[in-house]
Design a protein around this nucleic acid. Structure first.
Length: 138
DNA sequence: TTGTTGACCTCTT
DNA sequence: CAAGAGGCCAACA
């Protein structure tokens, strides 16, 4: 049948053309996860974003949970995803416990000149990086 | 196969 | 103002 489905990418600033991302399950199909990985990789150094922001950028603000779940395998794929730059809406390092070490996330952020106190990113609002705005969906 | 869990967010009471 | 429930998609038992 007529497969008129055409992959017109160029519509989004996000270069999603890397189906090589190996999911924790071994799947190579385009999934919500891969999109999340790409966006997270686009996060500039010294900036942080929230799960909801990424989910919202993808069009599903309700799927914020999936974003965090995707990060679960972020350590297992290549290139490595800066999951330490992703925190919850409160700016709290909710996923720090899932890193190699409970302090790795804070250490990585410290290298980005991002100071964390009480598991909360200081000046989170200033370091906040919204893909929906920075990437401009114009 | 179904059911539960999971690095969340938003709305409603 | 605070607490509770709903909702999304995917992996695991």
């Amino acid at each position: 049948m007529a497969k008129s489905s055409k992959p017109q990418k160029t519509a989004k600033p996000v270069t999603i053309e890397k189906p090589k991302a190996v999911l924790p399950s071994g799947r190579k199909d385009l999934s919500f996860f891969e999109q999340v990985y790409d966006v997270v990789r686009l996060i500039p150094k010294g900036r942080v974003t929230s799960y909801g922001a990424i989910a919202a950028y993808l069009g599903t603000r309700m799927s914020a949970r999936m974003v965090g779940w995707a990060m679960n395998g972020a350590h297992n794929i290549s290139p490595k995803v800066p999951a330490h730059r992703v925190v919850n809406r409160n700016g709290m390092l909710s996923g720090k416990a899932h890193f190699a070490t409970p302090t790795l996330m804070e250490e990585l952020l410290a290298k980005e000149k991002i100071f964390v106190k009480d598991d909360i990113i200081q000046d989170f609002k200033t370091k906040y990086w919204d893909p929906s705005i920075e990437l401009s969906l114009d």
